[in-house]
Amino acid sequence: MKEYAVYKGEDLLAIGTAKECAETLNVAAETIYYYTTSAYKRKLEKRKNPDNCRVAILMDNE
């Protein structure tokens, strides 16, 4: 099962499956998936303060 870590800047907001993170953050699971996409990262590059945005990292389950 894939696990994600969701950050806002340097702060860890949630860790777990997309569904668990979504429940913690009160968003849809699809939002967690979106946070990991390259399209979202490109969108953040255009923002004035991208360090204040949420990002999700797919954790390696080795």
Rank of each mutant, 00 (worst) to 15 (best):
C21Y: 01
V27L: 10
N26C: 14
E20K: 09
A22V: 04
K43Y: 13
E10A: 08
A56L: 03
Y35T: 02
A5H: 06
V27E: 05
A28C: 13
A22S: 09
E23F: 15
E45P: 00
L13D: 02
R54S: 04
V55R: 02
A28T: 13
R47S: 14
G9F: 08
K2A: 10
K2D: 13
L12D: 07
G9Y: 07
R42H: 10
L25T: 01
K48V: 12
A14V: 05
D60Q: 15
E62N: 14
A28W: 14
C21R: 00
K19W: 13
R47L: 15
T36K: 04
I57K: 09
P50K: 01
L25D: 06
M59I: 13
A18R: 00
G16S: 07
L58N: 08
D51P: 05
A22Y: 04
D60M: 12
D51L: 11
Y40H: 00
V6M: 03
E3W: 08
C21S: 01
Y40E: 03
D51Q: 11
V6E: 00
Y7H: 07
T36N: 05
I57D: 06
K46P: 02
Y34N: 08
N49K: 07
L44K: 01
G9M: 01
K46E: 09
R42K: 08
S38F: 12
D51I: 07
L12C: 00
N26G: 14
D60P: 14
E30H: 14
Y35P: 01
T24E: 11
M1E: 13
T37Y: 09
N49V: 03
Y4Q: 02
C53I: 05
K48S: 12
T37I: 01
A14I: 00
A29Q: 09
K2V: 11
C53K: 06
